[in-house]
Amino acid sequence: MRILLWHVHGSWTTAFVQGRHEYVVPVLPDRGPDGLGRARTWDWPASVVELPPEQLADPRPDVVVLQRPDDLKLLEDWTGLRAGVDVPAVYVEHNTPRGDVDEWRHPLADQTRVPIAHVTHFNRAMWDTGRAPVHVVEHGVLDPGPIWTGELPRLSMSVNEPVRRWRVAGMDLAARLAEQVPVDVYGMGVEGLAARDAAFADGRHEDDLPQHQLHQRMAQHRAYLHTYRWTSLGLSLLEAMVLGSPVLALAATEAPTAVPPEAGLVTADVDLLAATARRLVNDPAEAAERGRAARDHVLAHYGVQRFLTDWDDLLEGML
């Protein structure tokens, strides 16, 4: 199968392109958002080919994976193909809706030709998808092995643009924990954290690491902290768990489903999160035990082979 998709979410795409198909990603000279091409900080197989817009239609894709409302127009402008009319297409909804709850109507809600595939059941429950066909294909993550050591008595986080997305990512809550347990933050745009809140001044913040280096950093920390108030499900949470790291998560969005009790703690009580963080920092044996439970859960529920099989079933059913 020849699959056309945009490089939008690096971690999700890294799992998606591990399948047995040929994957075509648009590339533009500036490698901007509409044409990032192949990943530079993730490892992708040779089956992922980057092509400029004028070459996307020849040979014609068997199916198109859309991920943003503008992708429908880009597809038609660049290839002359209409999604769901001239070529089978599916829209992957990575994000939770924004704005007032009464405004949570999906951009594709009023059509039936392009199914919407949500990445979590939480997403499906939150969006008003109208008449559109709806599926849920839950996340899958690659397994780098049980590399967690927990040697650093610190917490780790992986958050892109934490200063700009301050309350969405729950960085104000993370700052409360950082006053009691050191928190190191990794991701794009992390350099302004200490200036935004002095609680992060003692943390080590590294920007835009390659995925394998990011995993090595996360694996050294005693536990992983996930404070998102509003997101579908941060893939970095699952990635931390598959490394063998225990996790401390705010009880919001899909986190209560993704994290079993034995893997750490999921709660809306930030004081309890802080107390548990202090306990894990002082008890490496408990942290290791909870990390093993976290890894077992992710391998059982979010393994990449299950993810790829679910996607094959959905895409092949559209042909």
Rank of each mutant, 00 (worst) to 15 (best):
V49T: 12
H121L: 05
R229D: 04
L66N: 06
G203V: 00
L193H: 02
A201H: 01
G32N: 13
A125E: 13
G32M: 02
G10F: 04
A255T: 09
G140F: 09
R278D: 00
D100C: 04
Y228K: 00
M188T: 14
A195E: 13
V281F: 05
L308S: 07
H226Y: 13
A169R: 15
A255C: 09
L238H: 05
D184F: 01
A39S: 15
A258F: 08
R2I: 05
V242P: 06
D208K: 12
P146G: 07
A293L: 02
Q180A: 14
A198Q: 11
P52G: 08
G203A: 02
E161I: 00
V8K: 12
M157H: 02
S236F: 00
Q213V: 04
T309I: 07
M188W: 11
M318K: 11
P26V: 04
V168R: 14
L56P: 11
T276E: 15
W148H: 15
H135L: 14
N95V: 08
D172E: 15
A293G: 13
D71A: 02
N160G: 14
R98G: 07
G37A: 10
G145T: 10
R164G: 02
V48E: 10
Q305R: 14
A178N: 03
P29L: 06
V64A: 08
L72W: 05
A249P: 08
K73A: 15
R229E: 05
F200N: 02
A285F: 01
A294I: 05
R279T: 14
Y228N: 12
P210D: 03
E76Y: 09
L74G: 00
R105F: 08
D86I: 06
S232G: 15
L225T: 00
A175L: 07
R167G: 00
N95L: 14
Q18Y: 05
E286L: 15
D43N: 11
P61Y: 13
H297G: 03
A39P: 00
L235H: 04
Y23P: 10
D34C: 06
L250Y: 14
V270W: 08
A249E: 07
L273F: 06
R176S: 06
L308V: 07
H21E: 13
A277L: 01
Y91W: 11
W230T: 01
R31I: 03
V85S: 12
V181I: 05
T257E: 14
H106Y: 09
A198V: 08
R82L: 09
A294Y: 09
L193S: 01
